[in-house]
């Protein structure tokens, strides 16, 4: 029988001003950025930054809830490969992400519609 690594997923809600500091803490723990996603719920953006540890199989998520017009800083300086995720949430949800290295300027998916994942009437 194998040893099973199945720790609980952690979730922490943070203020968007603390984002870079918290992400840096994750980087120093040698964690990998597993995914980043946005959701649009009740007129606000919910951003999830998930970090995974490859040895303990732990996953912790940072949750940001921001107003539609709030700009968030890019984390590409800390995790260079986050640029795909950031371009994606920028294009599909219209989240204002500032200072992305490799900014595709809403041309990652080559779609005409402006932020198609956010319903027009909710804006």
């Amino acid at each position: 029988m194998n040893e099973i690594f199945n720790p609980e997923n952690k979730l922490e809600e943070i203020n968007h001003e603390k984002l870079l500091r918290k992400v840096l803490v994750m980087k120093n723990k040698n964690m990998r950025l597993a995914q980043m996603c946005a959701a649009f719920v009740e007129g606000k953006y919910e951003l999830s930054y998930s970090f995974a540890d490859d040895e303990t199989y732990e996953m912790s998520t940072l949750r940001l809830i921001i107003e539609p017009d709030t700009a968030i800083p890019s984390i590409t300086e800390i995790y260079p490969y986050a640029f795909f995720y950031e371009n994606e949430i920028n294009e599909l949800f219209g989240v204002n992400v500032k200072f992305i290295n490799h900014d595709y300027n809403k041309k990652l998916y080559r779609i005409d519609a402006e932020s198609p994942f956010v319903k027009k009437e909710d804006k």
């Binding site: 194998n2 040893e3 099973i4 690594f5 199945n6 490859d54 040895e55 199989y57």
Partner: peptide
């Protein structure tokens, strides 16, 4: 990198 999600059981 010894990482396989199946180890999560």
């Amino acid at each position: 990198i010894k990482m396989d999600m199946r180890m999560r059981g």
